[in-house]
């Protein structure tokens, strides 16, 4: 299906929203205004935005430790996200989750996950529930090259295939699991080849091209929705920043980084849209200003929000039951 102009512009805006959000987070992290660590999505924006736009609103996603981009793409309120990163009570998880556990049930986002590969069996379980309830929905499960070497991936992919469940596996191959390159961690070049082991379709795509991601995921979603079962999409991309705050990136060269930055997914899409006449410099400038202003508002909201009351430590351990002291 051809994407409407409005939708394309919105995809561009969302990619930019992710990048600018992450840049802002990066600043706050390095200044220590946000404590702890975070895993930035800069460079991978085309995957989240392309994939999520191939879904219907009611469809689900589940995300990873590098999950801000997925949440923004699915339509989460960035004010609540920023507040969560600041550990504030107005945050998406009331300050309980932080960067690793952002969630938004309203947008059918089952949440980020601090354990590499840990979300895959859960996504398959969610797909099982949809199947058993004969719902029309599907779930899109994001994970990474690193997760593909977890046993959980194998168990879950096998189960999803054997039970023919409506899940689309989207592996973001950003070339490194922390410092370990895919060359060191796999003895195959094409990670999508693993799909054969589960008798499901597997395709490797350019994860820096948002429309290519969109098309591939659209097909996987259609297949899942029509009862055709799971599929695996491996989106080749690159994380521009280090794995997390502490990463000095000693394991890769500046040249390699630059080569990927030259393939900037946002610049690429911007150029495409300009060639199509959908964007011009003025429009781009306007979108930038709007996005930046939105992020500033999120920052202000986060900074002005209160921290949780100390007693909230004890809330939400159980549903309808107090934690024993």
């Amino acid at each position: 299906m051809e994407l409407s102009e409005e939708k394309k512009e919105n995809m561009y805006r969302n990619m930019l929203r992710i990048r600018q959000f992450e840049r802002k987070v990066d600043q706050f992290i390095s200044r220590g205004d946000i404590t702890g660590t975070t895993h930035l999505y800069i460079g991978q924006e085309a995957v989240a935005v392309g994939a999520v736009n191939a879904l219907e609103k009611e469809d689900y996603i589940s995300s990873t430790h590098r999950g801000h981009g997925h949440s923004i793409a699915k339509g989460s309120d960035i004010k609540e996200m920023m507040a969560e990163l600041f550990g504030k009570s107005t945050g998406a998880c009331k300050g309980k989750g932080g960067s690793l556990h952002i969630i938004d049930t309203e947008t059918h986002n089952l949440g980020a996950n601090g354990i590499v590969g840990g979300g895959i069996p859960i996504a398959v379980g969610a797909a099982l529930a949809m199947d058993m309830q004969e719902k029309d929905e599907v779930i899109l499960n994001f994970f990474s090259d690193g997760a593909m070497n977890q046993g959980a991936f194998h168990e879950a992919a096998n189960l999803a295939s054997t039970w023919n469940l409506p899940v689309v596996f989207v592996c973001e191959n950003n070339q490194y699991g922390m410092s370990t390159s895919v060359e060191k961690a796999f003895n195959i070049k094409d990670l999508a080849a693993r799909a054969k082991a589960y008798n499901i379709p597997g395709v490797k795509i350019d994860g820096n091209k948002v429309l290519e991601v969109y098309d591939a995921v659209k097909e996987g979603v259609k297949r899942a929705r029509e009862g055709g079962g799971p599929s695996l999409i491996v989106a080749e991309t690159y994380r521009w920043k280090g794995h997390s705050k502490s990463d000095a990136k000693v394991y890769r060269s500046k040249e390699e980084e630059q080569a990927w930055k030259d393939r900037d997914p946002i610049a690429h899409f911007e150029e495409e849209l300009k060639n199509e006449g959908l964007l011009d410099d003025d429009k781009v400038k306007k979108i930038h200003e709007e996005v930046d202003s939105e992020i500033e508002k999120a920052v202000t909201f986060a900074q002005d929000s209160p921290y949780p009351a100390k007693k909230e430590l004890f809330d939400d351990v159980y549903v309808d039951a107090e934690v024993e002291l």
Binding site: Y60, L110, P121, I122, G125, A126, L128, A129, A152
Partner: peptide, 9 residues
């Protein structure tokens, strides 16, 4: 994991 995931939906 499937039990966890199914219980969420």
């Amino acid at each position: 994991g499937a039990a966890v995931g199914a219980s969420l939906v």
